[in-house]
Computed example of a mutant assay.
Amino acid sequence: MIAIGAEIWLGFITRLPLASFPAYRMSMIREIWACANQILSQYGDAATLHAAQRAEELLVNGDIEGQRTWLRILARINALEAAPPPSAQLN
């Protein structure tokens, strides 16, 4: 009986939107930004290409959630590249 209840509970939890768990969502958002920053530092001008290729590889392998994560990382990389350098923001 407990196992059945646990399965129902876990199924319910996995179907809730992330907005239901604000602390988890904030942690995930920070991790995505940190990954984007790391990929940009590691790959430089090729960071966008690397992230896009990784997202495509995961899609081809059927890992939809992994692909979504890399698309989020790619969006953050694009945002970081579009931001003015810190010295330009001070003026």
Rank of each mutant, 00 (worst) to 15 (best):
M1H: 10
M1G: 15
A3M: 06
A3Y: 08
A3T: 07
A3P: 01
G5N: 11
G5R: 12
G5W: 04
A6P: 00
A6W: 02
A6Q: 04
I8E: 11
W9V: 01
L10G: 00
G11I: 00
G11W: 00
F12H: 04
F12D: 01
F12C: 00
F12G: 00
I13M: 03
T14L: 03
R15S: 12
L16M: 15
P17L: 05
P17C: 05
P17D: 04
A19F: 01
S20R: 09
S20V: 09
F21L: 07
F21W: 06
F21Q: 08
Y24D: 10
M28I: 07
M28R: 15
I29D: 14
I29S: 12
R30H: 06
R30L: 09
R30K: 11
I32W: 08
I32C: 10
I32P: 04
I32A: 11
W33G: 04
W33P: 00
C35P: 00
C35T: 15
A36M: 03
A36L: 04
N37Y: 04
N37F: 06
Q38L: 12
Q38C: 06
I39S: 11
I39A: 08
I39F: 02
I39W: 05
I39Y: 08
L40S: 15
L40W: 07
L40Y: 08
S41A: 14
S41Y: 09
S41C: 11
Q42L: 14
Q42Y: 11
Y43Q: 12
Y43L: 07
Y43E: 13
A46V: 06
A46Y: 08
A47K: 06
L49N: 09
L49D: 13
H50K: 07
A51T: 04
A51K: 05
A51P: 00
Q53G: 02
Q53V: 03
R54H: 12
R54Q: 13
R54M: 15
A55D: 06
E56Y: 01
E56T: 01
E56D: 11
E57H: 04
E57F: 01
L58E: 06
L58D: 05
L58P: 03
L58M: 11
L58A: 06
V60C: 00
V60A: 05
D63W: 01
D63R: 04
D63Y: 02
D63C: 02
D63T: 02
I64Y: 01
I64C: 03
E65A: 15
G66K: 09
G66A: 12
G66V: 07
Q67E: 12
Q67N: 13
R68K: 13
R68W: 07
R68Y: 08
T69P: 02
T69F: 10
W70M: 12
W70A: 10
W70D: 05
L71P: 00
L71K: 14
R72Q: 13
I73E: 07
I73C: 03
A75I: 01
A75N: 07
A75S: 14
A75L: 07
R76L: 03
R76S: 14
I77F: 07
I77A: 08
I77Y: 04
N78R: 15
N78M: 10
A79Y: 06
A79D: 13
L80M: 11
L80G: 07
E81R: 15
E81C: 14
A82I: 13
A83E: 15
A83Q: 14
P84Q: 02
P84V: 00
P85H: 08
P85E: 05
P86W: 03
S87D: 05
A88V: 02
A88G: 01
Q89N: 10
Q89K: 09
L90Y: 03
L90E: 11
L90R: 10
N91T: 10
